[in-house]
Amino acid sequence: MFEPLPRLLLGLLTGFLFGFFLQKGRVSDRRVIVSQFLLRDFTVMKVMMTAILVGGAGVYAMLAAGWVELSVKPAHLLSIIVGALIFGPAMVFLGYCPGTAVAAAGEGKRDAWWGLLGMTIGAAVYSEFDVACTRALRAPVDLGPVTLPQLTGVPAAVWFGALALFAWFFFRWLDRRAES
């Protein structure tokens, strides 16, 4: 029923910091998220790309040092694409993703409370169809828990370097355009 208390407190602390950062990053604001999808405000992309670059560089460095193991989800490409094509439009209408909905709800935004209710009902309904979903959408295309370096032979450092370069020039171009 319970994991050990220290581990639960660790989860609480990690979550507290995560929620704190999301709120300070303004991504618990529905207008900021919808503006990203309208391509008017790239705050969400800036947060996510920086998190991926900083997080990824550190995790791969710690992996090389033998301190951590990766925890990669299997590439069931069909179910991921079908799920994402439902998730993306739903995120536009709700205005939050699951994590930012929890943050907005904690902050006192009442529309997010209703969002959490819908999400809980969604989880209940999905749990009835998981077996069918696995049979229909996961089994057909399963590439296993594969990473881009494993798939392509291109090392992680090159992937992060290329991503960083792209992010640097793209966001600099956006920020300069916004200034002028």
Binding site: M48, A51, I52, G55, K73, P74, H76, S79, I80, V82, G83, A84, L85, I86, F87, G88, P89, A90, M91, V92, F93, L94, G95, Y96, C97, P98, G99, T100, A101, D111, A112, W114, G115, L116, L117, G118, M119, T120, I121, G122, A123, V125, Y126, S127, D130, C133, L137
Partner: peptide, 25 residues
Amino acid sequence: EAVLGGFFLMIGARIANGCTSGNGI
């Protein structure tokens, strides 16, 4: 809008086996 959006958001997240945090980041 929020209830329906939340409903489909979670259906999509569970079909894809993760959301913006678990899969995206």
